[in-house]
Design a protein around this nucleic acid. Structure first.
Lengths: 345, 345
DNA sequence: GGCCCTATCTAAATCGTTTTACTAAATGAT
DNA sequence: ATCATTTAGTAAAACGATTTAGATAGGGCC
C-alpha cells in the first residue's frame, strides 16, 4: 500500500479542468498569464480535488527545500537532555520562523555524519560542536553545501562562538579574589562536550580560562583537582562525591556546565554542607535550571538564544549565495546569584 | 549565485567514469548488476568528485523523504518556552533515531497550517493540540497524507492522549480529602493550550476532572475561583496575585500546568505565605522544572517522553502503509512532593 | 484585407535520480 | 556449431512540478 497512491498531481487537476498542466501551474504561480475565469476554474478544481503541489518536485527544480538541518555530535535524544539545547533550539527556531524555514533536527547515523548528508534534504546545516575541518564535515565542503559552525573553530565558513575563556576566567577570578584556594574544577565530559577536544573545543577554552586566572593569582594549579564530569545532574553529584572520597575538601567549585553544578548543590547538601556558606559554586551557561534550582545558581551567562538566532541568520545568508564567512564571538557575563557569597568581583 | 552551481550530478560521475548514469546508480544501489571492477572504478570516481545523490531527486521517485514533521499550534519558538515540549521532543527524537527519520519542526505560517503542508517535504505529521476534524487539518485528510494527533480527539487517524481527567480528578480529590475547600484553580490559557478549546481540549478535560472531584465531595464549585493563566512562571505569579487582590484566600491551588504552579510558589513566597504550610499546590505534567524548583512541586505525572515516542511509532506505521488507526490513552499518576503536606490520598 | 500586437493557452525541456526493459557479448550445454 | 543462458551494461520512461519558447485566436489600426 503506497500511502501516496491517491496522490493528486498537477496532471489530474489539468485533466479535470480541461487545461494543460502548465495552466494549472500558472494559476497558482503566475495568474496574470491566464484569463481570470480560467484561473478561478482551475483553483476551484484544485480545491475540490484537494490538490497541493508536491514540495519535493518543486524543490527539485527550485533547488530550494525551505528547511535547514541541525546536526549535533550526539543523537538528538541525548542532546536534548541538556536544557542548553532547548534554549539554542528556541533561538534557531525563532529565526527560522522569521525566515520561513523549517528546522530539521538530525542525529548522526551510526555515529557518523555522511549518511545523514545524503539522506536529508535541507538547504544547509547548522553544525554544533564540530570544527570546520573535522573529518566528518569534509563532505559538506566538497559538495559546497552551505553550513555554519557553532561552538567550533572555522575560517572559511561562518561560525558562532562565545568567549568561553573569558567567561571561565571571570568565574575563577571571582573565587580566587575571594580567597579560595581549594577549588574543585568539574569539566565537561563526553556527551555534550565538543566532539573533538583536540585543542579547540569549548571544554578546552573554559579550562584555559580557569587556568589563566590561577596563574594570574599565583595560585597553585593542581591537575588532580580537575575532574571530568558528565554534563548532567547525576554527573555532578557523582564527581563531587568522588572528590570528597579522595579526601579533597573544596571550599569552591567551578563547573564547566550548569547541569553539573546543580548536581553539586544536591551532593553538597547531602553531605551537610551549606551552599554557599561552606561551598561556593559557579556554573557555566546560565541554562534554564540554573535559575530554577535553589539556591539559585551563580553562573556564567552566555547568550544561547542569540547564538541560535545568529547561526540561522548566517546560514540563510550563505544559502542565498553570499559566500563571505563571518565569525561571531559573543560575550559572556558572570552572573552572581545565590551559590556565591559576595557580589564583588 | 546559485549555491549549488557546482553540484555534481550522477551524469558527471558517469561521464568521468565513462559509463551510463544507470551504471553509477547501480554501483551504489545494486552492485550485483555490474562487474566488480566497474563498481569499484565508479565508486572511486564518485568519491574523488565528492558525489552524493540528491536526496530530493531520490525522494521524488521513492516517495519517501525520510523525515516527519512536528506541527504545533503556536510558533515553535513560543512552544519551546515550555519544557513540556522539550521532553516531548526528546521522546519523538528517540524514536526518530531508531527509525532513522529526521525530525522537521514546523511553525504555522501566518497562524495557519495549509501553507506549511505544501512547503515542507515530510512523509507525515505529528500534530499537537489539534483535533482530527479541525478545519486546519482537513487538507491533510483530503490529500491522504499520514498524520497522528497528540493531545487531541481523533477517530480515523491514530492518536496519543493522556487521561487528563483522571489526573486532574486525582489532584483535586487529594486536596478535597485533606479538607481544603478554598481551592484556587489556574487553568491553561492561550499559548500552550489546545488550539480549539471547544470541548475536546486538554484544558477542558482537566477542568472536567477537577469538577468531578468537587461534585463527588459535595464541595462548592465557584466559577470565580477558576482563572485562566498563561502557562508560564509569570502567568502563575500574575494570576495568583490577581486572586489575592480579589480577596480570595486559597489554602490550596490546583494548576493545569507546572509552569503556572512554579509561578504560584514564587508569588506565595512573596506574600509571606509558606508552601505547603499555608498553601498547598499541585501542578500538572511533571515537567522538568517541577523537580528543580524548591520546594519540589507536587504534580500529576504524565508520560511525556513516551507520548512522543508513541506518536512517532504510530506515524511511521501509517507511513509504511498500515491504515488502521490506533488510539493510545496513557495513565497519569499523582506525584506528591513538597508542595503538599501529606502523602495520603 | 493585411499587418502587428496582445492575451491566452500549450508542448516540450528540465531538475537528478531510479527503474524497467532491452541489447550485446560471453559462457555453457549438447 | 547451435541454441539457451548468464553477465554487463545501456536507453528511455517515470517521478511531479516549473519554465521557456511557441502557437493560436482575436482585436485594433491603417
Amino acid at each position: 500500500m503506497m500511502p501516496y497512491s491517491k496522490r493528486i498531481t498537477i496532471g489530474d487537476v489539468a485533466a479535470v479542468a480541461k487545461v494543460s498542466p502548465t495552466a494549472v501551474s500558472f494559476a497558482f504561480n503566475k495568474p496574470d498569464q491566464l484569463g481570470i475565469d480560467t484561473v478561478n476554474r482551475i483553483r476551484q478544481v484544485a480545491a475540490d480535488l484537494g490538490y497541493m503541489p508536491s514540495p519535493v518536485a518543486r524543490a527539485l527544480i527550485s533547488k530550494r527545500v525551505g528547511s535547514i538541518g541541525l546536526l549535533t555530535p550526539q543523537p538528538l535524544s541525548t542532546v536534548l537532555a541538556n536544557t542548553y539545547f532547548l534554549t539554542f533550539l528556541q533561538g534557531m527556531s525563532s529565526m527560522c520562523d522569521e525566515q520561513e524555514f523549517g528546522l530539521l533536527a538530525l542525529s548522526p547515523i551510526d555515529g557518523s555524519l555522511d549518511r545523514v548528508f545524503s539522506r536529508s534534504s535541507v538547504d544547509g546545516f547548522v553544525i554544533s560542536g564540530f570544527d570546520e575541518d573535522h573529518r566528518e564535515v569534509l563532505p559538506l565542503k566538497k559538495r559546497r553545501i552551505p553550513f555554519v559552525v557553532v561552538d567550533g573553530a572555522a575560517s572559511s565558513v561562518s561560525s558562532v562562538n562565545v568567549d568561553d575563556e573569558a567567561g571561565a576566567y571571570a568565574s575563577a577570578h571571582h573565587m580566587l579574589s575571594n580567597g579560595h584556594r581549594d577549588i574543585l574544577i568539574l569539566m565537561i565530559e563526553g556527551a555534550f562536550g565538543h566532539h573533538d577536544e583536540g585543542g579547540h573545543g569549548v571544554g578546552r577554552r573554559r579550562l584555559a580560562g580557569y587556568h589563566k586566572a590561577f596563574v594570574e593569582h599565583g595560585a597553585d594549579w593542581r591537575d588532580e583537582w580537575v575532574l571530568p564530569a558528565a554534563s548532567s545532574r547525576s554527573g555532578g553529584e557523582r564527581e563531587f562525591n568522588v572528590a570528597l572520597a579522595q579526601g579533597m575538601r573544596p571550599t569552591a567549585v567551578l563547573c564547566a556546565a550548569d547541569a553539573t553544578a546543580v548536581g553539586v548543590i544536591t551532593a553538597a547538601h547531602q553531605h551537610g554542607l551549606s551552599v554557599p556558606r561552606d561551598v561556593e559554586i559557579i556554573g557555566f551557561d546560565d541554562s534554564i535550571e540554573s535559575n530554577l534550582v535553589r539556591p539559585a545558581l551563580s553562573t556564567v551567562h552566555q547568550p544561547i538564544f542569540e547564538k541560535g538566532r545568529s547561526a540561522v541568520r548566517l546560514l540563510t545568508r550563505h544559502i542565498d549565495g553570499d559566500e563571505r564567512a563571518e565569525h561571531i564571538v559573543m560575550e559572556t557575563r558572570l552572573l552572581l546569584r545565590d551559590t556565591t557569597r559576595t557580589r564583588a568581583g
